[in-house]
């Protein structure tokens, strides 16, 4: 009995893997096409963004309340923003253009979201890694002190972004207002997300409150990995894990509701 249940699970996982792979290929083609540099835009675009912001912050000598080189500060901060902010943007409104594909019963709303999330997180990650390597190579940046801690922070940010994206994507299918609200909320959340400041530079009274913003914990973690002892970081990892866990559960519940209600076209 148990082994047959395991087989069913295994077969379902294989189908889902196949569907997500097919959706991924399809997504790359519809989004980037076969013109000029094609799917390289996936990470060239975030690289341009990050480079632009880095240059801007360097030129204006942005105040960030630490002795860190501004390039390192901008790279870790802005890459993090792209990671958690682009995933929801891509998942809101993701169902509608894919409704015709849901004629195939194995293609489900969750698969459409997962394919887009993989692509988006992949793009942000490649951009972050390539820019890091490039800046290190030309001497603007020291190599990270502890790569694993950087990865840990990065994964936490990705988890937060992915669960938020699925929740908003599912809710946005029912309520148009989600799409309208997301843009201002994302914009306002940027300065609060820890991308443009270190928690340590804030007044002590504000520090404990700012850590309630989940992204701040992730960015601090990334910076701890990058700069080691040179910075004094503050984060509450158990809080962020609990937050992401709750968000994921809520998101999956809403995705289930939506996939019961949609009508393929």
């Amino acid at each position: 009995m148990e082994s047959s249940q395991f087989n069913v699970l295994f077969r379902s996982a294989a189908i889902q893997g196949r569907v997500i792979q097919a959706l991924l290929m399809r997504e790359i083609l519809t989004r980037f096409g076969r013109h000029n540099i094609g799917f390289l835009w996936l990470f060239v675009e975030p690289m341009l963004f990050t480079t632009g912001v880095t240059i801007l912050w360097t030129v204006t000598k942005a105040v960030h309340g630490s002795t860190l080189p501004i390039v390192a500060f901008a790279l870790t901060g802005y890459s993090s923003v792209l990671l958690w902010r682009n995933m929801p943007s891509r998942c809101i409104g993701a169902v509608e253009p894919n409704l015709s594909l849901m004629y195939h019963r194995n293609v489900r709303v969750l698969d459409v979201f997962l394919a887009r999330l993989l692509l988006e997180a992949g793009g942000a990650t490649i951009s972050f890694v390539v820019l890091s390597l490039f800046y290190i190579y030309i001497g603007w940046l020291e190599p990270p002190v502890d790569v694993l801690t950087v990865a840990k922070g990065w994964l936490m940010l990705a988890w937060f972004g992915a669960s938020l994206a699925m929740l908003l994507g599912a809710l946005g299918e029912k309520h148009e207002v989600i799409e309208r609200l997301w843009h201002p909320v994302a914009y306002i959340a940027f300065p609060l997300s820890g991308a443009a400041f270190m928690v340590d530079s804030l007044p002590a009274a504000a520090q404990q409150y700012i850590l309630y913003v989940p992204m701040v914990n992730g960015v601090e973690l990334v910076r701890e990995g990058y700069f080691g002892d040179k910075v004094h970081v503050h984060y509450d990892l158990p809080y962020m894990v609990a937050f992401c866990m709750a968000l994921s559960l809520l998101a999956l519940a809403q995705v289930t509701v939506i996939s019961r209600e949609i009508t393929p076209e």
Binding site: V19, A22, M25, R26, L29, N98, S100, L101, Y103, N106
Partner: peptide, 18 residues
Amino acid sequence: AFQGTLTGLDNVRFISRI
């Protein structure tokens, strides 16, 4: 059951993959 922005061949590939 297929997507207008993709080519005919891409649609064949997509369905074949699924």
